[in-house]
Every structure is written in C-alpha cells, then in structure tokens.
Simulated assay, not measured.
Amino acid sequence: MTDATPTTRAVLVLEDGSRHVGRAYGAVGRTFGETVFATGMTGYQETLTDPSYAGQIVVMTAPHIGNTGVNDTDPESRRIWVSGYAVRDASRVVSNHRAQGSLDDQLVADGIVGIRGIDTRAVTRRLRDVGSMRGGVFSGDDFDLGDDEQLALVRESADMRGLSLSSQVSTAEAYVLEAEGEPVGSVAVLDLGVKTSTLRYLAQRGFRVHVLPQDTTPEQLRELAPDALFFSNGPGDPAASDDQVELLRSALRDGLPYFGICFGNQLFGRALGFDTYKLPFGHRGINQPVLDKTTGRVEITSQNHGFAVDAPIDGVLDSPAGFGRVEVSHFSLNDQVVEGLRALDVPAFSVQYHPEAAAGPHDSNHLFDRFREAVVARKSGQPVDFGSDLESSI
C-alpha cells in the first residue's frame, strides 16, 4: 500500500453494483468488508479503534471528519480496526489543543484504505433500504481495475454471517490491571475485543481486572478463581463462537456472577439457549434510545452491533438451556430489538449496548455500579439482585 495524494482517485463498490467515486483517504490500495454506517457526530477516533468494527467498512454519517485530529489518550485499543473508512469531507487541517497528529496520517500508519469526497448520505440511504452489504474500496492502481472485476472481487469477499473474528482482536497473553481505591475482588474479563474504557471503569470500581485471551478454557478460568466474570464487546457472528458459549455455561453452572456487554450479551443469550440473528443494517452510533424495564428509564446509548438475541421482550421466560427463569431487561425503542437480558435464578445479566461509551453518552455508566454492588453482596453472603440500581445511581 502507498499513501494517498490529493488527486488519487478511489471508488466504493457495494455488492449490489452501486458505485461511489471519490478520492483516496489514508492508505492506497484495496480493502473489503461489510459496509455499515455510524451515526455519531463526535468520537471518530473511538469509533475507529473500537475492535467491534473489525471486518467492516465504516461510513460516517457526520459530514466533517478529522478536524480535531488524533491523540494518544482517546484510542479504545492498540490500533485502528476498521477494514475501510468512508467520509464526505475530510478536514484539510487539524485544529485542537489535544491533537498530536492528523487522522489521515494515522490511517496511513495503520494501513487503512479509505475514501473521501463521496455522498455518504446516499450510501447511508442505500444501506437503510437494502441492508448492510459487502463492499470494497479501490484506490490508486486498483481504481483502474474494470467495474466488473471490482464487483466480482467484492462478491467473492467474506460474508459476516458465520465469521469468527475474536481471535484477530483479542489479547494474545493474559494481563492484570490493579484495582483503584477500595478493593472489592477480582473479575475475569474475556477479551473478545475489549475497549480500554471498559477495563478502566472496572478497575475504578475496585476490581482487580484479569484480562484473558478469547480461547481461555473452563479449567483455566476455575484455576484463576475470580469473584466474577465479564464478557466484552467484539466483532463477528455470535453463532460462530461455540467455545466462548461453553465457557460461559460452565461459569454459570459454577455460580459465578456474570456481566456481559454487546457481543457478551449475544453470547449470554446463546448460553441461555436462545438463538441469534443478523439485523438488516444494525445499530451503530451514540444516539440509540433504550428502555430499562426495571427502572422505567429511557437511556440514550452507544451501540455497535449487527446481530441480536432472538427472544420475546415481554414476560418471564424459561431458559432453554436449563438456567432457570430469564427476562428481557432492556429493549430498543426504535425497533424493539433485545437490548438486555437478566437471569432470575443465576447471578447474571447483560446489555447489548456500550455502557462505557468513551465518546458519550454516559446514561448507562451506572451498570458498572450495579455489577459491583451485586458482587459485593454475593461475597458477603447476601442475595444478589442484578435488577436494581443503588438509589444514588438512579
């Protein structure tokens, strides 16, 4: 791959044959992925470094991107994970006191092929009508490939259905973050694409955080003997993560308190015996309204998922996998998609969105407090209730 010049041409090709011609942005070459749109007006650096976007070409609906540059504080992980990046207006200058470099340079450094100067509103409307599609960005010499050849390459690229990506984004070795303030115990975090802010929020609540690779076995988890288990966000199809589902079922049988977010919610649903399915175009952005059925509050949430748990949002259900009673605790007010699960007979709950939301909003940050108080209660021999917050957090 090479660097783009202001005149380097590029094209975004979708699998339905639609083409959007612009200029190269970042590295020059070719890239493929599931083309999705993200609606956040801010936080592009957090979006790019969110491992949940691995395997995807992200189209930003906000028109002006890059004006605040990039810095070493805001990244959510060790690198940019998107497969490709599409924007309308890429800022020509960086103007922010926190900036340590330009977004363009960071895209080049991480080898991300992007495109600028296209009608991202038209792309978004197309994805809303048809659904997320495979796509490819071609720039430089690859721009000159014939239309038919480019389209054939896109249609031959990987489909997100059945795709396991956790091994690409997870840590290779376990590591530990020490608790901050008054210690409350240890939590094992299965890194399926965990974000830095998640680990920081857990440590700030007194947890000694053991971050584990995605291929951790039940025997290794028992040997660690944590006080609680956490499954992170991450990319890919939850139906392709059987080993992680079995790890979670083993932990639930052992009575280990569990909290999962995003991909961790989908795997919790599978562990309970429910199916998952692919959404037409998913939920991606920082303005998604969710109803918390326990408190009756509506929270504006940060989300990034293309799959969901298949379960009715009303009533108490019996876990098909034998874990007792379960209820859907949260659901989307846009399309009634399951946004949270709560087990009533084992100490476990999950949400589909990102309560850490480094770029905001922070409406759901209290869920980390809910998790902490439940673990403290369990360690002191008191009943565990994952369904209610502390009065001070409401």
Rank of each mutant, 00 (worst) to 15 (best):
G260M: 01
V94Q: 04
V309W: 05
V351T: 14
D310I: 03
P218Q: 05
P289G: 11
A179F: 12
V11K: 05
R88L: 09
L248E: 04
T198Q: 08
A152W: 03
F323Q: 09
A86I: 08
E219C: 00
H362R: 13
I286F: 12
T61G: 00
V375F: 01
Q244I: 05
F259Q: 03
G193Y: 00
M1F: 11
R9A: 14
D227P: 01
T276S: 14
T198Y: 01
Y85Q: 04
K278Q: 15
R208K: 15
T301N: 12
D389N: 12
L165Q: 03
Q214E: 15
D335K: 09
E182I: 12
R116P: 01
H330F: 11
G101V: 08
G17P: 11
Q303P: 01
V316S: 05
S332Q: 06
L317G: 09
A377V: 02
A377F: 04
D310M: 06
F207Q: 11
G33R: 03
K293A: 13
R325W: 07
F331S: 10
S380I: 00
G260L: 01
R134V: 07
V316C: 08
L256H: 03
D369K: 06
V290E: 06
G146H: 07
V209C: 09
H64C: 04
A24K: 08
L224Y: 09
D141P: 08
Q244A: 15
A377N: 13
D292M: 11
D104V: 10
A239P: 04
A203I: 11
E180I: 13
V326I: 13
D141K: 15
E15F: 05
K195E: 15
D119V: 04
S364Y: 04
E219G: 08
D369C: 09
E34H: 09
H283N: 13
D215I: 03
T7F: 12
L212C: 04
E173A: 14
P347G: 07
V123A: 10
A158C: 01
A122W: 02
A54F: 01
G69N: 05
V194Q: 05
V309Y: 05
Q352K: 08
E180C: 08
G140A: 07
A374K: 02
L190H: 01
G162L: 10
E391I: 12
I394L: 15
F259I: 08
D129L: 14
I313D: 09
S91Q: 03
Q220L: 10
S232G: 06
N265S: 14
G111S: 10
A62C: 09
R253G: 05
A240T: 10
V123S: 11
I57L: 02
V326W: 10
A311G: 06
P63W: 03
G285S: 06
H64A: 13
D369T: 15
R30E: 15
R98P: 00
V87H: 03
V209F: 09
D119M: 05
V176L: 13
L390W: 10
L333A: 09
K293G: 06
A4M: 08
P312K: 05
P6G: 12
L12F: 12
V108S: 11
V13T: 13
V28R: 03
S132W: 04
